[in-house]
């Protein structure tokens, strides 16, 4: 490996490059172009924060109407927003909550499932958008009742679908890899 000039030249160059790399990594100043290329994580964080802020602001009228007990108007407002932002997970979650409060159990659960499938953040306890506690309460309250309905009408497709949906939420609440 150190036999002749060829070997020694290579070792010399190798040593030089390792030193240069070491210097580059730990001592050289970071120039502007590097900063622009390396801020990917920051971009993602900003995107996420902006997204959350946008959603909270956009859907604030719905939340306000719901908080005032005017769930029917809140649902209509959601429908109006749907024209601009169709298929948004946040709308599905809000719709789920409003439908459940009005007694549309199967449809409410289906809306929650749609929202969680579109964006797993809603099942997360640590996400700013998370509805972990709300969905936990939903599963705990409705699972036994839906089981009873399915036992009473084992062939009811509507309630069997609702049961599958609530099992999905239960499974997502249990965690695991996605």
């Amino acid at each position: 490996m150190f036999r002749d000039f060829f070997d020694r030249a290579h070792w010399f160059a190798l040593g030089g490059l390792v030193i240069a790399l070491f210097y580059l990594l730990f001592f050289s100043p970071v120039d502007g172009s590097t900063v622009r290329k390396q801020d990917k994580r920051l971009e993602l964080v900003l995107q996420e924060k902006a997204r959350i802020a946008f959603l909270l602001e956009t859907y604030a009228p719905v939340e306000e109407l719901a908080a005032a007990g005017n769930r029917a108007a809140a649902l209509l407002k959601l429908e109006e927003l749907e024209r601009d932002f169709p298929g948004e997970a946040h709308a599905s979650i809000l719709r789920g909550s409003l439908l459940l409060e009005q007694g549309a159990i199967a449809e409410g659960i289906a809306a929650y499932v749609l929202g969680v499938r579109q964006n797993g953040d809603y099942i997360d306890a640590r996400s700013l958008l998370g509805r972990h506690r709300e969905i936990t309460a939903l599963v705990e309250a409705e699972l036994p009742l839906i089981k009873v309905r399915v036992e009473k009408s084992p062939n009811s497709r509507t309630w069997n679908e609702a049961l599958n949906n609530i099992y999905y939420l239960q499974s997502r609440l249990a965690g695991g890899c996605e």
Partner: peptide, 18 residues
Amino acid sequence: DLELMIRDGKITADDFNI
């Protein structure tokens, strides 16, 4: 019908008091 009219853009949710 309110929902459908809003969806079609004929009215908006803010036009009415429920």
